[in-house]
């Protein structure tokens, strides 16, 4: 398999971590991102040549911009973008606090800004064959953040 450049969000735990780990193990280069940078720095210890830990909160457009810049400086392209960061609110509609519902949507909308920034900045992904975008919203419990 030829080497691909990945960017994965929400790599602290869950699917994000597992996806990043699997891609690195197969010899790909991966920007492992999470809003908690400390939670993904271990990747760089194990894969110093191919893992690039970055702080990226999908609700923060400045961080998205910085992460994308760093990505291009280091690896020059992105082949596979995995939008994994997400969480679920489990509550009756009548009882959920609006800030938590809006927060969940803003996290999703933030991923959209991410695409927009990334694609608007350079026409890279538009031309990349086989780009993979995966979005996960999942979780259990009254209100629990998963995968970050």
């Amino acid at each position: 398999m030829s080497e691909k450049i990945w960017l994965v969000t929400g790599c602290a735990t869950g699917f994000g971590r597992a996806i990043a780990e699997a891609a690195l193990a197969q010899g790909h280069k991966v920007a492992v991102t999470d809003r908690n940078l400390a939670a993904v720095e271990d990747f760089a210890l194990r894969y110093p040549e191919t893992a690039l830990p970055l702080g990226l909160d999908v609700t923060n457009s400045d961080q998205i911009a910085a992460a994308v810049d760093a990505r291009f400086r280091n690896f020059e392209r992105i082949d596979v973008l995995v939008n994994n960061a997400g969480y679920a609110v489990q509550q009756a509609v009548a009882e959920a606090a609006m800030p938590s519902v809006r927060g969940m949507w803003l996290a999703c909308a933030g991923q959209r800004s991410y695409h927009q920034f990334r694609l608007g900045r350079r026409p890279g992904l538009r031309a990349v064959h086989g780009a993979l975008c995966v979005q996960q919203i999942r979780g259990r419990g009254a209100e629990r953040r998963v995968g970050r």
Binding site: S61, W105, A109, R112, S113, H115, Q116, L119, G120
Partner: peptide, 17 residues
Amino acid sequence: AEEASDAQTRAMFEVNF
């Protein structure tokens, strides 16, 4: 998706959802 501004996207979600 790449063309719409953040503001107009969020404003539409405010009204439609």
